[in-house]
C-alpha cells in the first residue's frame, strides 16, 4: 500500500468511503472504506482498509491492506490483502491471497487460498488448493484441494476433511472435552483425508487412505489404510492400521 491518503506523485488522492444505509456504488480507489449498512459494489475496490459491519455484495475484486468482516456478504472477484479477519459470514468466489487470515466466523472460498499464516477458529470451506507457511485450526475445515504448508496444526473439536496434505510437520490432536460434551451433535472429533505426506507426522483421530512420512506417529483413534515411513513408525494400541511399510 502506498502512503495513506497523501498525494504522492501520480498516485491519486485517496478519500474515505462510508456507507451506512442502503446504497450502490461503482467501486474505485479509496483510503478507508467502511460499510455499516447494506452496500452493493458493482466494480472493484482498491483501498487501504475495508471494514464490513453490514452486508456487502461485490461484483469486482478487492485489493486492500486490512480487511475486517463482522457482517456478511459475497465478493465475486479475487481478493488481495495483507490482513483478513472474518468474524461474520462471507463467501469469496475468487482466489484469495493474503499474509494473515483469521476466520472466526463462517466462510467459503471458491478459488485458491494463499497466505503466510492462516488461523481458523470457525468454519471454512475452500474449493481450491491452500498454500501457506503455518496453518492452524481449532475449527471445522473442509478443504477440497491440496493443503501445502510448512507446518499444519489441527485441534479437533468436530469433523474436518482435507483431501490432501503435504507439509513438513503436521500435528493433529483431539481436544480433551468434558464428559457431557462427548454427547454433542457433531459426532466424534475426526480428521478425514485421502493422503497425508510430510516429514514429521503426529496424528490422532485421523481417518486416511494413505499416510507417508519420514518419522510417523499414529495415535489413538486413527484409522489408516496404508502407512509408508522412512525412518520410524510408532503406533498407539488404539489405532487401526492396514499395511505399514518401510520404504
Amino acid at each position: 500500500m502506498s502512503e495513506q491518503g497523501q498525494h504522492t506523485g501520480n498516485e491519486p488522492v485517496r478519500n474515505d468511503l462510508n456507507i451506512s444505509g442502503m446504497s450502490t456504488t461503482a467501486g474505485g480507489i479509496y483510503r478507508n472504506v467502511r460499510i455499516d449498512g447494506m452496500a452493493k459494489v458493482n466494480g472493484s475496490l482498491d483501498c487501504s482498509s475495508l471494514r464490513i459491519n453490514g452486508t456487502l455484495n461485490m461484483k469486482g475484486s478487492v485489493a486492500t491492506g486490512e480487511m475486517t468482516v463482522n457482517g456478511m456478504g459475497t465478493i465475486e472477484g479475487p481478493v488481495k490483502a495483507s490482513e483478513i479477519r472474518i468474524d461474520g459470514m462471507f463467501t469469496l468466489r475468487g482466489d484469495v491471497s493474503c499474509t494473515n487470515l483469521d476466520v472466526n466466523g463462517k466462510s467459503k472460498i471458491e478459488g485458491r487460498l494463499e497466505g503466510d499464516q492462516i488461523r481458523i477458529g470457525g468454519e471454512v470451506g475452500v474449493k481450491g488448493d491452500v498454500q501457506c507457511e503455518a496453518f492452524y485450526t481449532e475449527g471445522n475445515v473442509k478443504l477440497e484441494g491440496l493443503l501445502n504448508a510448512e507446518s499444519v496444526e489441527i485441534r479437533l473439536h468436530s469433523v474436518s476433511a482435507i483431501r490432501e496434505i503435504g507439509c513438513e510437520r503436521i500435528d493433529v490432536r483431539r481436544i480433551e472435552r468434558g464428559f457431557w460434551k462427548n454427547f454433542s451433535l457433531m459426532g466424534a472429533p475426526r480428521l478425514k483425508a485421502d493422503l497425508i505426506e510430510g516429514d514429521d507426522l503426529y496424528l490422532e483421530d485421523t481417518e486416511a487412505e494413505t499416510v507417508r512420512g519420514t518419522r510417523v506417529y499414529i495415535g489413538r483413534g486413527c484409522k489408516i489404510k496404508r502407512v509408508e515411513y522412512k525412518e520410524s513408525l510408532q503406533t498407539d494400541e488404539d489405532a487401526v492400521i492396514g499395511t505399514p511399510l518401510q520404504v
Partner: peptide, 18 residues
Amino acid sequence: KELLDLTGISYGQLYRWK
C-alpha cells in the same frame, strides 16, 4: 516416491519448493 529416493530430498522440501 522414486523421486524422493533418487534425489534424497524430503517431503517438506518438495512441498516447500512447490
